[in-house]
Simulated scan of single mutants.
Amino acid sequence: MVRILLILFFILSSSGFIRCSRDDVDDDHSFVTSLDPKSLSLKEEKLSHFRLYWHDIMSGSNATSISVVRPANVSATGFGIINVIDDPLTLGPKLSSKLVGRAQGFYTLSSQEELGLLMSMNFAFTEGKYNGSTITVLGRNPITHKVREMPVTGGSGLFRFARGYVQARTYSLNMKTGDAIVEYNCYVLHY
């Protein structure tokens, strides 16, 4: 792996993609331009609230959450496990509820002391006027807490320049299969 990284670095630096010389730095900072938000067709900022149900399905032949890293010595907290997700987002807690998007990304069990996740996912919307838009959630999720809060760090489409937070509440958890349904209340500032 290290050999591959060194070869990649050599190729990129010799092709001009990576520059290591201070001579390339322009001290007048002319690469920055102030813009009027109207030039990007940005309208007045608004606050939106929406509630979704996130279905993390680890069982069966159509699993939407797959473990891609599982340490040899799994601790009581699962420290080091990494799952990649493509989880349905629905309007109601039943999987048969209207599908409005997918939560795509990963989570890792990142605490040695408690059941705590690092969540990194995009809510990719597929319905209505938000079809094709996303919000990005990145943060700590201590799953044994009744309510967990994570930041919204950005977005695309109708959620450009998004910021805000989500609150997650476990609706149901099957301890045998690991399947979970989580209610997400999203509070997003966007244009």
Rank of each mutant, 00 (worst) to 15 (best):
S65Q: 09
G178S: 13
C20N: 09
H190D: 02
F31Q: 11
D24A: 09
Q104F: 10
A162V: 05
P151R: 07
Y184P: 08
E127T: 07
F31I: 02
K176R: 11
K176T: 05
F50N: 14
Y171E: 15
T170L: 03
S75R: 15
D36W: 04
V2Q: 06
G16A: 11
A76N: 07
V152H: 13
V69I: 09
V147C: 15
R22V: 14
S97P: 04
R70K: 12
K94W: 09
P37H: 14
Y171L: 01
S65Y: 10
T90Y: 12
R160S: 06
R160F: 02
F79L: 14
V69P: 03
T136A: 04
Y165V: 00
L95T: 09
D28G: 06
V69N: 04
S15F: 09
V84F: 02
S65W: 10
I81G: 00
N122T: 08
T136D: 10
H29T: 06
D24H: 03
H55W: 02
R140P: 13
D87A: 13
I81Y: 00
N185W: 00
V2L: 11
G116C: 08
S111A: 11
V137I: 03
S14Y: 09
S34A: 03
S39H: 08
I82R: 10
I18E: 13
D36Q: 04
F9S: 08
I7S: 14
K98N: 09
G164I: 01
D87V: 13
I85K: 07
T126D: 12
G128M: 03
E45W: 15
V2E: 04
D179A: 11
P151E: 15
F50Y: 13
F159M: 11
L6N: 06
Y184M: 14
V152D: 14
L6H: 07
V74I: 01
S96N: 11
P93V: 09
R140D: 08
E113S: 10
Y191D: 10
E127C: 03
R169D: 01
H29R: 03
V69R: 09
G139L: 11
T134I: 12
H29A: 05
I4F: 07
I18W: 08
H55N: 04
T126A: 13
Q167M: 02
L95P: 04
V100Y: 02
G139R: 12
G132C: 11
T108H: 01
G105V: 06
L52G: 01
L52H: 01
K176A: 14
F50W: 13
N122H: 07
A103E: 10
Y171M: 09
G116R: 11
C20D: 05
T170D: 02
S21H: 03
S48T: 14
L115D: 14
R163Y: 00
H49Y: 14
P151N: 13
E127F: 01
Q104Y: 10
Y184A: 11
F9K: 04
R169L: 05
R169T: 01
S48I: 15
N141L: 13
F79A: 03
P151S: 12
L109A: 03
R3C: 00
G139K: 08
G157Y: 07
I18H: 10
V74T: 00
F161P: 01
